[in-house]
């Protein structure tokens, strides 16, 4: 991103307590988030092109509400974006599950087709297991957030968390196998 230096400057201004920095930041960061979300869609070839805007809105708002947000670089920022994405997605999953049960959230704005209740439940299970994992090893938890929820590549994850790509790979493999084992009762 050409204006990454600008973003970094704004980010650090914001973290130093300059609230108005957010206004300048919004258009730039907005685009980054949209690209994140879009890339994920392109990666997974979803033909129905779900909207990115509301996802991005939510993620952004979530991020800026975290008072302890402390960006050191754009890469670092990506991590927080992934976390925000996680929250949004898990919320969506919860709503999807509840909807199926006729819980009536009012906002009938889902691409419900293809989302089985089972998948939504599985995602929630991942989320819970991930919490357990993160308790025991926060780094592994962050890696999963970046890779799985954020859709970041190995390199981007490494940048975001200031670790080496090899560490990311090893952690990603370990985390996935551990989580899978936790989730599938027949496994153990």
């Amino acid at each position: 991103m050409e204006d990454s230096r600008e973003v970094t400057a704004i980010l650090s201004a914001f973290s130093q307590g300059e609230p108005s920095a957010a206004d300048r930041l919004l258009p730039l960061v907005y685009e980054e988030l949209r690209r994140l979300a879009r890339r994920r869609r392109w990666r997974w070839g979803n033909r129905r092109m779900p909207g990115t805007t509301s996802l991005v809105h939510e993620a952004f708002v979530n991020m800026f509400n975290r008072s302890h947000a402390d960006w050191q670089s754009l890469a670092h920022f990506y991590y927080f974006a992934s976390v925000a994405m996680r929250n949004v997605l898990i919320d969506s999953a919860k709503r999807a599950c509840r909807q199926k049960r006729g819980g009536g959230e009012g906002l009938a704005d889902f691409e419900g087709a293809g989302v089985t209740e089972q998948r939504g439940a599985e995602l929630l299970a991942v989320d819970l297991a991930l919490n357990r994992l993160a308790l025991a090893d926060p780094r592994l938890g962050r890696i999963v957030e970046c890779r799985f929820f954020g859709g970041l590549t190995i390199e981007e994850t490494a940048d975001a968390l200031s670790i080496s790509p090899a560490t990311v790979k090893r952690g990603w493999d370990t985390a996935r196998t551990w989580l899978y084992k936790e989730l599938k009762p027949g496994v153990m």
């Binding site: 869609r41 979803n46 509301s54 889902f110 998948r119 989580l179």
Partner: peptide
């Protein structure tokens, strides 16, 4: 269960895309 784990996660990731709310 390594390989199954990896492919399961891939499958999950594609589900994630579906969960994003409609514009």
């Amino acid at each position: 269960h390594q390989d199954r784990a990896y492919s399961w996660f891939e499958g999950m990731e594609s589900e994630l895309a579906r969960l994003t709310p409609e514009e």
